[in-house]
Design a protein around this nucleic acid. Structure first.
Lengths: 244, 244
DNA sequence: TTTGCAATGTGTAATTTTTACGCATTAGAT
DNA sequence: ATCTAATGCGTAAAAATTACACATTGCAAA
């Protein structure tokens, strides 16, 4: 087994979408006093771990994702490296690290990855800790500098969502136009006209209509679409925008 | 003096613009055999250095820039962290590291920053090594994984140039419309219609015309403009693009 | 069986933005 | 005085974006 690199970790900001909200996966950080049973720490953190000698950052992030989901074809993107001098330095953070089996005493740097998964079909579990999806509009107390990391991840996600078709990663393979619209609306915090949004999507050659309808809904079922990465790669053109 | 962190460095991709080409600053990596005098290594690298215990990545990058230019208000942006297992592993790279005063034996990770400076007014010098501007269209042999780092930097620079007004960082305070146009053309590798480009620039409230003309040119002197970050921040609006 | 509900699907006109394109002007150099 | 090289300006056509209303579908409830 390869050795851990003690001063470097990877943290994954795992985003999920449930057709309604953008969610982020957090793991519970719970520590009770051994004698009194009183709760010393009870908050949440991102999923992350140190990297091994035989890994690069990408493979470390993929390993973490695989451990949680069992999948290894999940969208992952490195977005920033964090190095604040006091990033793991609150009393709770120190207490927590002291109680971990590996005794980390060094300053720890971390490389942030964000991951996009479809909240409705991918199931996540953690070996020995409690994990839970939180809507990004309603987050609990976060440990370490994970609030900062999460905010940066969101910022980068929003920027990327505006310039590349990564939103589809958050939807099941087959999706409806209004699911896609809702996704854009909740992530970018905007509202679009339903007819104009549909018009825009229909003219994208890489969003392909299927001869198939939504099922199990109690209203008129919508047409299903798939995203074709191949068609996108073939037809994409760079655009001079320079507008924002 | 603070201690070095032996397995972490910052590499700066310093871009400059001379009204004609996009350039990158490189430092010469030269090593001769002590007996025979024969050249063992003669190539170029990015500017970079290890980070110190009392620094974060940003301050380390700023320190490097300050050392080269004397300035500390230069545009700097972290763009990616590099971790390939064999990133400093060629015979030349090993030989070079063996000859450095600090004997680095560990695997080294690096965080890439790109920097934008005005090639025509900022002057750069290195204490004890030869530095030189190279047009990005005509690069020499690069050491370590610096070719990969430079390519990633360019990719990120292009993406950012399309969505945010960072091009002005590469120009002197006062600039003409066609200098700006040339800048966009060489970085993005496109051509714009002169009249339409001007129209686009003139409608940007944050590009402010001066009552002043270019001097010392042997043709009709052009009007000068300045970029106002304040006006930009006040008037910017997010745009739904999603087109690329 | 009928009715109500909730969301889907469609078209057009007005406005704004983008594109294409040619000619007169200026200041230094010769 | 003339040449040169780049600036400065305007308009028409095309394309993209915006605003906006009503009929349809399928299930659920009455």
């Amino acid at each position: 087994m390869a050795k851990i690199i003690p001063n470097l970790s990877v943290d994954c900001v795992i985003f999920g979408f449930d057709f309604n909200q953008l969610n982020v996966l957090l793991v519970e950080r719970k520590l009770d006093d051994e004698k009194t049973g009183k709760s010393l720490i009870d908050d949440w953190t991102l999923t992350g771990y140190h990297i091994f000698e035989d890994e690069n950052f990408d493979t470390a992030a993929a390993r973490i994702l695989k451990g949680l989901s069992g999948l290894d074809n999940i969208y992952l993107e490195q977005f920033y490296a964090f190095s604040r001098l006091d990033r793991v330095n609150s009393p709770n953070d120190k207490l927590w690290l002291d109680h971990q089996s590996e005794g980390f005493s060094e300053r720890i740097f971390t490389v942030g990855y964000f991951s996009l998964i479809d909240n409705t079909t991918v199931s996540i579990s953690h070996n020995d800790r409690n994990v839970k999806w939180f809507p990004i509009t309603d987050l609990p107390e976060l440990g370490f500098d994970h609030k900062e990391i999460l905010e940066k991840a969101l910022e980068k996600l929003r920027a990327k969502l505006r310039s590349e078709p990564i939103g589809f990663e958050l939807l099941p393979e087959k999706f409806t136009v209004s699911q896609l619209q809702r996704l854009y609306e909740v992530i970018l915090g905007t509202k679009f006209d339903r007819r104009n949004f549909r018009k825009k999507v229909l003219q994208m050659k890489y969003v392909i209509p299927l001869d198939e309808k939504q099922k199990g809904v109690k209203h008129k079922p919508a047409q299903l679409f798939i995203f074709s990465k191949e068609v996108y790669e073939k037809t994409k053109t760079e655009r001079f925008d320079f507008s924002i």
